[in-house]
């Protein structure tokens, strides 16, 4: 109860980024660091949106191509791409995006409900939309960004 009360009054900080022509954002609390793209080692038998694994100071973490994960057209990553290292549940994952655009401080009422054009992608990832300076920014959650156990076994 207390958590909800806090959420509805306190301003939140979000990190916004671009994939293709769209702008998205995630809660800054889940972001560990932002780094440039480095080649990943592909994992056999993994979904297409998993680009492989990289070495982050001794830890092995997977890279999720967020475009592909969200059902958007994806392109071959280059040195200009960015990886957002984020906490996903108990694991850490790298999210491949085109560029990070900044940090937004928003109050909860700025966040509007998801428009009723709900695709599959929207149902599992989109938490709402923000309208800031004529930009539409989609707030996503990272809960289901990694492949589930069933998917991975397939």
């Amino acid at each position: 109860m207390e958590m909800i009360a806090k959420e509805t009054t306190k301003p939140r900080e979000l990190i916004s980024f671009i994939i293709g022509k769209q702008e998205f954002c995630v809660d800054i609390m889940s972001v560990r660091e932002i780094r440039g793209w480095s080649p990943a080692t592909p994992l056999p038998h993994s979904p297409a949106f998993v680009r492989g694994v990289i070495n982050l100071r001794g830890a092995v973490l997977s890279i999720v191509d967020l475009a592909s994960r969200l059902g958007l057209p994806s392109s071959e990553p280059s040195a200009r791409h960015v990886i957002i290292v984020a906490q996903v549940g108990s694991q850490i994952a790298g999210l491949l995006v085109d560029a990070v655009t900044g940090i937004l401080t928003v109050t909860p009422e700025t966040i509007r409900p998801t428009p009723d054009v709900a695709s599959e992608m929207a149902r599992s990832f989109v938490k709402g939309v923000l309208a800031i300076d004529n930009r539409m920014i989609t707030l996503i959650t990272l809960d289901h960004v990694l492949p589930s156990q069933e998917l991975e076994a397939a």
Partner: peptide, 19 residues
Amino acid sequence: NYGHVPGIAAATILGDGRV
């Protein structure tokens, strides 16, 4: 940080820093 990968026991980091 990921899960089990069929046919793969684990990972390691080589001299070039790659997995």
